[in-house]
Design a protein around this nucleic acid. Structure first.
Lengths: 215, 215
DNA sequence: TAGATTGTTAATCGATTAACAATC
DNA sequence: TAGATTGTTAATCGATTAACAATC
C-alpha cells in the first residue's frame, strides 16, 4: 500500500467547497442529520453531479439513497481544506479593509486566527483595533520567525504591497493572502492568493452593462 | 451591416481584465505610451496568448511589433466592463465590511458610486460612516425606485441576507453584489455576484496544507 | 419492492494553448 | 531587413456533464 500523496484539486472545486460548508453548518444548527448532493446543488443552482464530484475529492463517503451524514461531511471538508487546524496569521495594513478583517469573528471556523497587526504608518502604530495593538512594521519579521507564522495577510495599498510581501517572505511566511490591487512577484514555493474585490465587481458590471444594453 | 449584440464572455476573462487595467493605469502614471501582451503577461505569469485572447473581447486593436496604446486600451477595457459610466449603488449593512467598502475611494474608477447606506439596526441608523448617514431599511425601497438605483451591495450577516435581497429586488435593483456567506435565491433576470472571502481563503488554505504535508 | 442517491467510467463542452501568416 | 508582436484558425487540455450500475 502506498502513502496517498496530497491530492491536487482544481481552483473551481476548492472555491465551491466553502459554499457547501456554510450550508452544511446551517443544516447542522437546524438539527438535520443527512444532506444529499441533489439538495446542496439546489441551493446554488448547480448540477447535482457537480456537487458529487466536488465532494469526492474530500474523501467523504455517502450512503446511496440517503446522502452524506452532515457532521462527517463538515469534518471531511474542513480537513481537506486544512481548516481543522487553525493557523495563526499576521495582518499588515491597518486601514479600513484590514480593520474589517480583524473584526470578522468567524475566521476561526475557517482555520484562520489573526494574532497580530502591523502598519508602516507611525500614526497608526500603538492604536488598538479590535483589542489588538498595531505594531510597527520593523517588528514583523522577528515576531513571525519566533512565532512560526505561516500566513500573511496584505491589506496595504498597491504601492506598498511588494515591499510588504518581500518582508513576509524573508520572515518565513509561506502563504500570502493579498488584497492589494498590484501584481506581486514571489519566489517559487511561496503560495500567493489574491482576493481582489474588483475582479468580482468586473463580472457584475459587465453583466449589468449587457442587460441594460439589450433593453 | 448588423448591430453587434453584446458579447458574452467567460467569467475567467472578465476577472482578468481588471488585473490588466490596474497595471495599465500604473503604466499610464509612469508615462508609458504602449504596452504589449507579452509584457502584461509577464506581470502575472500568464501565457502571452491568454492576454491577447482576453483583450480581443474588448475590441481593442493593437499594432504589430509595438503593442497596444495604453490610453486606448484602458478606455476599451473600461468600456467593455461598463466602468466608463459610473453607476450609483446602495449598500445595506453598516458593519465592518460595509464601512470598509464605503471608505474605499477608488470605486469611482471602477464604475461604482455608493450613494447611500442602510441598516436594520436602529442603533446604527443616524450614525455617520465616511460622511454618509446610515438610513433605516424602510427607506431603501422608496429611495431606490426614485433614484433609479441599479446596483445593491449586501454586507449584512448570512441570516439577514435573503430579506435584504428580496427588498432590493422589489425596489427595482437589477444587480446585487453579495458579501454574505449565504446561498441567495433571486428571480430570473436579476444579476447576482457573490464576493465571498472564504472562497479565496479555501484555495490558500488547501495549498498551504498540501505544502506543509509534503515536507 | 421501487426509487432516489451514490460512485465511477465515458462523453462533451469550453477555456487555454499552439501554430502561423500578416505586419510594422 | 529582421524580429517582435498582433490577429486568427486549429489543437489540446481540463472541467463539467452524461450515463449507468450498485445500493440502501
Amino acid at each position: 500500500m502506498t502513502t496517498s500523496a496530497p491530492v491536487v484539486v482544481s481552483r473551481s472545486t476548492l472555491k465551491r467547497l466553502p459554499l457547501y460548508l456554510h450550508v452544511l453548518e446551517d443544516l447542522q444548527r437546524q438539527g438535520r442529520e443527512y444532506a444529499s448532493c441533489t439538495m446542496l446543488a439546489g441551493k446554488f443552482d448547480f448540477a447535482p453531479i457537480l456537487v458529487r464530484k466536488d465532494l469526492e475529492v474530500t474523501g467523504a463517503k455517502g450512503t446511496a439513497k440517503i446522502g452524506f451524514k452532515v457532521v462527517d461531511l463538515i469534518r471531511d471538508i474542513k480537513e481537506f481544506l486544512g481548516w481543522h487546524n487553525v493557523q495563526d496569521a499576521f495582518l499588515v495594513g491597518a486601514g479600513n479593509l484590514g480593520k474589517a478583517l480583524l473584526g470578522y469573528k468567524d475566521f476561526e471556523l475557517y482555520g484562520l486566527n489573526i494574532v497580530a497587526v502591523f502598519d508602516a504608518d507611525p500614526r497608526k502604530v500603538g492604536t488598538r483595533v479590535f483589542n489588538k495593538e498595531v505594531l510597527p512594521m520593523g517588528r514583523m519579521p522577528g515576531l513571525a520567525k519566533r512565532m512560526h507564522i505561516n500566513i500573511g495577510i496584505v491589506t496595504v495599498s498597491a504601492d506598498g504591497a511588494q515591499a510588504v510581501v518581500d518582508a513576509m517572505v524573508i520572515s518565513g511566511i509561506r502563504a500570502i493572502w493579498n488584497f492589494a490591487p498590484a501584481p506581486l512577484s514571489i519566489p517559487d514555493g511561496i503560495i500567493l492568493e489574491n482576493a481582489r474585490l474588483t475582479q468580482s465587481l468586473a463580472v457584475l458590471s459587465n453583466n449589468l452593462k449587457r442587460t441594460l444594453q439589450s433593453e
